[in-house]
Simulated scan of single mutants.
Amino acid sequence: MRKLLVLFGILTVVFACGQEKKQINAKIMNIQYPEINANNFEQKLAASVKHYEKEPLYYMRINKSNCVVEVLVNDYPVHKDYELSNYATPLAINRAILKSGEQTLTYRLYPVGNLIKEEYGEGGTVTTLTDNTAIAISIIKMDNNSEKTLEDEEVIIKHISLSDAKGRFIASGKPYYEFTFTFNAQVPYVNEGWSKGQDLSKLDQKLLEAKAVEFYKEYGKIYEMKDADLLAKVSYGLEKRNSIASYKKLYDINGLWKEYLADFDEKNIKVLPIENFRMVSFGDDKVVFLLLNSLSYTYRGGGALRIEYIDKDGDESTLMPGIYLYLPEGKKLEDGLYMIN
């Protein structure tokens, strides 16, 4: 039995049996959609999605060798692959396309490290990109409303990494390589996303990091308290953008919310301290993310908030929510950050 108290913007949950008191500070975790809760999340989300005669969906196909890769569309992370193998299916990118027009795609290549040794039991640690490093990326388009399959995809652009006169990768011997190219996308929707966020590079960086850490800590308390209403409020903007861009139907949204709630069913939920991270920016310096400093396959590329639990099979697992924050125009950093829309 628990009692919910709301006082001076502080949500306080008091547990019986002498358990530790948990609090969520509404001033730290700014809420943009206070009207959203666990009961209306699905209906509100479905109502925000419009459907069109043509519903363009954009994907990318990636084929890489002798490297691992991270991909950003419009400076927003859409894919990371730290394995030797390649994905057979195309990867959706509409969530990073806010409106029609020219889009940018940036890929970052890194050495394979110990992957060859781990996979084949031989070889050493590879610390640089090699002569044989290569990547090919195709942007493809499909209509969500058509009866065509991915075999009928329309190729928008193909990109192949550059080589020198002898056929060697141009960044051979280097520990890192980045390249950006553009493509055109036409979509019937317009998402605000982070476009009306402030340039965070111009703000006090120590205060920015402190506010991001505060938000991450408060976000973790959602899982400790299993607060479905607050999870719905802070997740709504992100999922609204994704749902609009993917033309999701109510059935898909119902499944999405079930996945969110399933995390509350896990046992022995424990939120780890926010530590060993570095602050990075995305969205042309309008988005901040706390990146965990780790090269392990389990954690690499993940955020600083880690939630450990025991899954239904009795195995230890870790949830790493992707918490991307921004500061809307007209807001003060001293008053805290917001989840991106």
Rank of each mutant, 00 (worst) to 15 (best):
S201A: 04
S201W: 00
L203I: 02
L203C: 02
D204L: 07
Q205L: 03
L207I: 10
L208Q: 02
L208F: 02
E209M: 03
K211M: 00
K211C: 00
V213I: 11
F215T: 07
K217W: 06
K217F: 08
K221T: 04
K221I: 03
I222G: 01
M225L: 13
K226F: 06
A228Y: 01
A228Q: 04
L230Q: 06
L230F: 06
L230T: 09
L230W: 07
K233H: 07
S235M: 12
S235Q: 11
Y236A: 00
Y236C: 03
L238E: 09
E239G: 08
K240S: 12
K240T: 14
I244P: 09
A245R: 06
A245P: 10
Y247S: 10
Y247K: 12
K248F: 13
Y251I: 13
G255K: 10
G255N: 12
W257A: 10
K258D: 15
K258N: 15
K258W: 11
K258Q: 15
Y260C: 06
Y260M: 06
Y260H: 10
A262N: 15
A262T: 13
A262W: 12
D263F: 12
F264T: 01
K267M: 06
N268S: 13
N268G: 06
I269Y: 02
V271Y: 01
V271D: 00
V271T: 06
L272K: 09
P273W: 10
I274Y: 08
E275H: 10
